[in-house]
Design a protein around this nucleic acid. Structure first.
Lengths: 261, 261
DNA sequence: ACCTGAGTTCCAATAAATGAAACTTTCTAA
DNA sequence: TTAGAAAGTTTCATTTATTGGAACTCAGGT
């Protein structure tokens, strides 16, 4: 095992609930000998990959990693474009907007724009949720063929809520709806009372694909506002799709959107 | 030389003008043998530190690095960061520095660094002062729109001293000045003979906003020192704003700062 | 088909990582 | 204040990865 995989493992220890790590954290989380954990953390700090908090013992990611991480958005310029679209919509309507990517069968939030409403949906960047059980996930899965989706879930899946697809055949039916409607929608899926609308777009040159999502409390959004959100998302994503010449993009079908969710 | 330093060197190759790297980039930038560059990039990709762009030979930072980089922002809260900046300035110049937050129409001191001078401004942490009648308050109010400021004071306010804004229209004028200058200033407002300079910065993700303030006896500070204080505060706050991608940050306008207070 | 620049693979010499145990520091509670 | 425990660091012989020159492969251009 090269030290590189140990470095990657250490970085994977950080999460929205673990902002710093200690030697013993690594011992328990990764099962690595104390001696290695101690030396590895110090070496990573000496090379500028980590910083010590205050005067030692706790290690957190460094400014270098922060800066390199920011590059990701520009390197994957699709993310940046999608973020601009979602940010604008979020600013206009006051609801939470975010963009996500898919890694295997999981969806990961990449950027977020918190809403302005007192009742707002809060999402943590970096959190992972199952792809099949979210509007962002289904928007992205709809870009795969049915066979590819089946391959992704060789053992099927277990629905986390009643409004999520209960089995593979229901998932495929809903993905077909996403393709014809041009957007995906979820209700009470990850969080009770939360409604979400998502559209996916890709860049065939880089292979990147992202989902644009607006999430809002179902209770305070009228049908007309929901339609407006869908229209804005669809229009913004269509612009990006035109730019990247995304052939997998499913354009918005407003007549379907107008039927109640 | 451990491979870790090579990894750090590779990460340092990324910049706002270089979003991805190739084997030859490393050879020219770092002077490393082609063989090493080739293996290192592939190893970093295999471990999830880098991604290949499409199916090309270009490597860019990975989603993992993006996420770990985001942690950096939360690892040290906005208040901690602001406090570090103010503490450093306070140490250097010997005057009192503190950071405050706004709660409604009041400003609350959160942390303080007492100065070293015999004649020093003493502030109590936790004290509440009216937002409109202090430099910290106006620095923070300047981040609101005029309408939001008016809503904050539906019944107007009563000026506590002659140098404080006397009515809403004067307050709005002074907030406009704060926005163009990038800093707020007070003189004889809360305390006679006390001068204060403040800059505000926020984190759009968490919604937090803080004011960084240096406070000093007007009698013993020359214009040149006042300018140096403004410059330090502005630079420190700008660094934080870059980190949090604060879009409401008003950068320092030195030519305005140079005119007498 | 040939050339060129870019990237990859091979090899033995060399340098680094490993992990158990001993050691030191820091924390906790009597 | 001090004993005891927990957390962190260092040591050392062994194992393993890294190194860099050179030969090799691949893709694009003429």
């Amino acid at each position: 095992m090269t030290i590189l995989s140990a470095v990657a493992d250490v970085l994977r220890c950080f999460s929205s609930t673990r902002h710093d790590v200690t030697v013993t954290d690594l011992v328990t989380l990764l099962g690595m000998p104390k001696s290695n954990a101690s030396r590895l953390l110090r070496a990573m700090r000496d090379e500028g990959l980590l910083e010590t908090v205050g005067d030692s013992k706790r290690y957190r990611p460094s400014l270098l990693l922060n800066q390199v991480g920011q590059i990701y958005r520009f390197a994957a310029s699709l993310i940046d474009r999608a973020d601009a679209v979602v940010g604008k919509i979020s600013d206009e309507i006051g609801h939470t907007g975010y963009i996500s990517v898919r890694r295997g069968e999981e969806i990961i939030g990449v950027t977020a724009h918190p809403g302005r409403h007192a009742l707002r949906v809060v999402t943590a960047i970096g959190d992972r949720i199952p792809a099949f059980a979210s509007s962002t996930g289904r928007a992205l899965l709809a870009r795969l063929t049915d066979d590819e989706v089946r391959t992704l879930y060789p053992a099927g899946f277990t629905a986390p809520s009643e409004t999520a697809p209960q089995d593979m055949s229901e998932l495929l039916t809903r993905l077909a709806s996403v393709r014809s409607a041009g957007f995906a929608e979820s209700h009470d899926e990850a969080v009770r009372g939360v409604h979400a609308v998502s559209v996916a777009v890709g860049d065939p040159v880089t292979g990147d694909e992202v989902a644009l999502c607006i999430s809002f409390p179902a209770a305070i959004v009228e049908p007309a506002e929901r339609l407006a959100i869908i229209r804005s998302l669809g229009a913004g994503a269509a612009e990006i799709a035109a730019l990247t010449q995304d052939k997998l993009f499913y354009p918005l079908n407003l007549s379907i959107a107008e039927t109640a969710p």
